[in-house]
Structures are given as C-alpha cells and as structure tokens.
C-alpha cells in the first residue's frame, strides 16, 4: 500500500510512448496537455493566484467595497495584533478547535471503526447508521444539535432530568459551547470512520495470526501491527481535521445565532459568537469584519494570517505524509 500524496513522476513506471516516432508523439502530447490543462490553469489564475495576490494587496489598504481602496501601510496588521480584542478571542477559539477537534475526531473515528470492524451481525446496518449523520447538511445538523441540546426543552437535558441530573447549558454556556460544537462534529465524522474502517479491514490477516503465534496480546497487536499499517490514513485524518478546524464557520455562526434566541437573522453582528464570543471563530470574525462591517481591508489582513497558518499546516503535514509513505512503501 502506498499513501496518498506523492508525486506522479514516481508512479510513472513506463514511459508514455515507447517505440518509434517518440519526438512527434511528445509534441502531440504537449498540445493535448495544454488542452487538458487550460481550463484548470485559467481557474488557478482567476480563483487562486489572483485572489491571493489581491488579498495581500487589500490587506494594506482601507477598503469598504464602495470607494476605491486607500493604501494605509501596515495599519490593519497593527490593529490585528495590538488593537482588536475580539480577534484574540477568535484566534483562541479556532486554535482550541484545531487542537481538540483534531485529536478527538481521529481518536473517535478510530474507536468507532475498530468496533465496526469487529461487528459480525448487522454490520452493514451499523455502518450506515454511523455514516449517515455525516451527510446531513451542516446547517441542518447544527439546528439539530442546538435543539437537541437546548437547556430547557431539549431531549438530552430532558432525559438527564429523568435520571435526576440537572443538565448543563450546552450552547448557552460559554465554557460548553465549543465542546457542544465538538460533539456535533464527532457526530458527523462518518467519512473519516469509513476511511479508517477500510484501512483496518485492509490490514493483512496473516500478520495478526503470526503475532498470535508469538503470544502477542490484543493491545500489542494493535500497537505493533494495526497502528503502523494504518498510520498514513490516520495522518490523512489529521491533516483533514486541522484544515477543517481552521475554516470552521458554518456550525459556529449558525449555532451561536440560533442559540442566542434572538429574533435577528443568523450572522447579525449583535448575536454572532453567542454566548460571550465563545463560538466566534477566526473565519466568523473575518466574515463579520469583511462582509457585515465592510472593513474589507482589515478582513484581508485577517485572511493573510489565516492563509499563512493553514499553509504552514498543509506543508508540514504533506511532508510528514510523504515521509510516512516512503517508510510504508519500504515495509510492504
């Protein structure tokens, strides 16, 4: 088994055009290459490279979307790092999600997948049940959880009350709103479960049998055989979760607004981040600054920071993943 992210050149086992007329074919190929790649190349320029450059430019301006942008130097960045109190909270919230979500999402998915891998009766049904929530549109899933975890009328606290427990405030408690978002995310992490499950089922059985003959216990087998074999998949799960947490937006903005009980529309400045800015993630504040308050220059400065951080994570994890792929390749 080889892992995801390695370059195509390494996989090219045979050269594309053996035999005579290589030069002509190569020229012809070059034309086809251009044809095949040109839509994507246009997309790359217009929707990736240009906006990145423009974001960098706008981050140095005062721009409200109506008047043309004014160059203001580093003022936005100064405000970002020294003035804006809310952005600090927002960065903390996002960092919290990056750490907690990544760890729990991978661990939880691994746990569920491990159970599913051992189910003998009704395995298909259980898998469908575990996977289904991940398909629920995030807005619908968030409304579901805000309702289910409503402190007063929500089913969870109702059930807790029946067994004599005074349920917590969940989305209405600044200390529990992020854990509640975490629950919501775990509930919908079926995709990762299935990916890990597939990897678990792919572990060669003879490896286990050999280990059993050596008298290895279940934990040793897991640590020595299962874990190393599925490591690339777990790493993929980590990258995926980190990127997911860095752009955490929909669930946060919807949960905060709806749980506030206000009659204002979702995303209204007065209710985002409810309670006490605890659900105000970095992308939510970026959106609010850029597209509600129209401090588009400032929002661009925040975007630059978000870009740098997410790019660093991506690069770091791609390197690790490729490293893991190499060692994996060597083993099998």
């Amino acid at each position: 088994m080889t892992a995801t992210l390695h370059s195509p050149a390494r996989e090219q086992r045979t050269s594309p055009a053996p035999g005579k007329g290589r030069g002509r074919i190569r020229n012809r190929n070059r034309l086809w290459l251009l044809v095949f790649l040109s839509p994507w190349a246009i997309g790359l320029v217009v929707f990736f490279i240009y906006p990145l450059l423009a974001t960098a430019y706008f981050s140095l301006t005062n721009y409200n979307g109506l008047d043309s942008a004014n160059f203001v130097g580093l003022r936005n960045f100064v405000y970002l790092f020294t003035g804006d109190e809310i952005v600090r909270t927002a960065a903390y919230n996002t960092l919290w999600l990056v750490v907690v979500l990544t760890v729990l999402r991978v661990a939880f998915s691994l746990g569920v997948a491990a159970v599913l891998a051992r189910v003998q009766k009704g395995g298909g049904l259980f898998r469908v049940l575990c996977y289904l929530p991940s398909l629920v549109p995030p807005v619908a899933a968030t409304l579901t959880f805000v309702f289910v975890l409503n402190p007063q009328i929500g089913p969870v606290n109702t059930l807790l009350r029946h067994v004599g427990i005074d349920g917590p405030l969940w989305f209405n408690d600044p200390n529990l709103s992020k854990p509640a978002l975490t629950l919501l995310t775990l509930w919908g992490s079926g995709e990762l479960m299935i990916i890990i499950l597939a990897a678990l089922l792919d572990v060669p059985k003879d490896l286990y049998e050999a280990a059993q003959l050596d008298g290895a216990g279940a934990w040793t087998q897991f640590r020595r055989i299962t874990l190393p074999t599925i490591a690339p998949v777990l790493l993929f799960g980590m990258v995926n979760s980190i990127i997911f947490a860095l752009q955490y937006f929909t669930q946060a903005i919807v949960a905060g607004s709806v749980a506030s009980g206000s009659a204002d529309m979702v995303g209204n400045s007065q209710i985002i981040g409810y309670p006490n800015n605890s659900t105000l993630t970095f992308p939510v504040w970026l959106y609010q600054q850029g597209f509600r308050a129209y401090h588009m220059g400032y929002a661009s400065a925040m975007a630059v920071v978000l870009f740098v951080v997410s790019f660093a994570f991506t690069a770091l994890l791609i390197r690790q993943l490729r490293g893991a792929a190499h060692t994996e390749g060597a083993r099998s």
């Binding site: 929707f47 906006p51 974001t55 706008f58 752009q247 937006f249 588009m296 975007a303 790019f311 991506t314």
Partner: peptide, 14 residues
C-alpha cells in the same frame, strides 16, 4: 486545502 475565507474579499469584489 485553502480555506475559502482567505480569498473571499477579492473574489467578492470581482
């Protein structure tokens, strides 16, 4: 891997 919020301002303006 790019968070969609990073490019939102210039794309929206465009």
């Amino acid at each position: 891997m790019l968070p969609p919020q990073v490019t939102a301002v210039p794309l929206y303006s465009m």
